[in-house]
Design a protein around this nucleic acid. Structure first.
Lengths: 154, 154
DNA sequence: GCCTCATGTAACTTTAAATGTTTCATGAGA
DNA sequence: TCTCATGAAACATTTAAAGTTACATGAGGC
């Protein structure tokens, strides 16, 4: 499978939106993510349903942040994306009749379940505000300034 | 991506081999895994290189276990398979020039790295002997007996 | 009212990775 | 020398993510 880049992509988009005044179009965000506007709408749909962002049609329309960055975690965003599959590995067959396979599945499932719980707990500890703060720290460290409108132009 | 079932599959194969006297052909094991003999040879190649199994050509040839089940863990088998990718999610781009993306990647990478470390530690705690014991416990609990030659015949 | 812009969505195409298959080479018995 | 088995390369299939096209809907601006 191709690796799922939705979480990475949508976080990138959200942090860019936070740097911009007013609504941002899917087309602009597609430029940021180097993808297609429809892909942006697709991944943003889940966040809209949860009220993390709002969208408006027509002239001057686009996307706006509609949540407190300090109150939303990466876990929340992950859930808003529909809680996509985390692992690239899995059992060959679910509901196996073979007792060997049942033993194998039970052992693997438990290990994977624990790793998943840890991962989600970690994501639950990182707020969008923390991510944004990290970005600003990197910006200050570099000493440059940042124009979100053109940062991805090249 | 399709989910990677190599680890699950190879464990299934190893536990079946443990129940059978003498060498087992790729063709028979393919029946167990409900796949193709070439697929079996492919995933067993890594284990052979590490000395966990041996293969012999010709009449009466096939695969044999060549390790102590109490000394080999699922982590060892995972490594023998070439340490395949664990996560279905990842960053959209590595080495990003954008500072926003750097911040996103750094946060996600750390969470995933920790989850991976936990998973591998868990796998390192499970020996093949423990898996096999679990299988035998299930077998006893069910009260039936087990014919490894025919368990997958249907 | 009509035109343009922007989202909403369905349907279809492309792509990447795992898996499956075919084919032939090689070596070990019988 | 014939058959059985692995070894390995090359090619085909499958699946899910991502990309694309097409059209409907609603919101200003004129």
């Amino acid at each position: 499978m191709r690796r799922d880049g939705k979480l990475s992509g949508v976080l990138h988009v959200l942090l860019h939106m936070a740097e911009i005044e007013g609504p941002v179009t899917s087309e602009f965000l597609a430029g940021v993510m180097q993808t297609n506007p429809v892909v942006v709408r697709r991944i943003m749909a889940g966040l809209r349903d949860r009220g993390y962002v709002r969208s408006e049609k027509g002239h001057g329309g686009g996307w706006r942040i509609a949540c407190d960055f300090a109150a939303v975690t990466l876990r929340d965003i992950y859930d808003a994306l529909g809680a996509p599959e985390i692992f690239a590995m899995g059992n060959r067959s679910e509901a196996p009749g073979c007792l060997v396979e049942q033993a194998v599945n039970a052992a693997m499932d438990e290990s994977f379940r624990e790793a998943e719980a840890l991962l989600l707990a970690q994501l639950g500890r990182i707020t969008l505000a923390a991510l944004s703060a990290d970005f600003h720290a990197r910006l200050a460290a570099r000493g440059g300034d940042f124009n979100p409108e053109t940062a991805h132009a090249v």
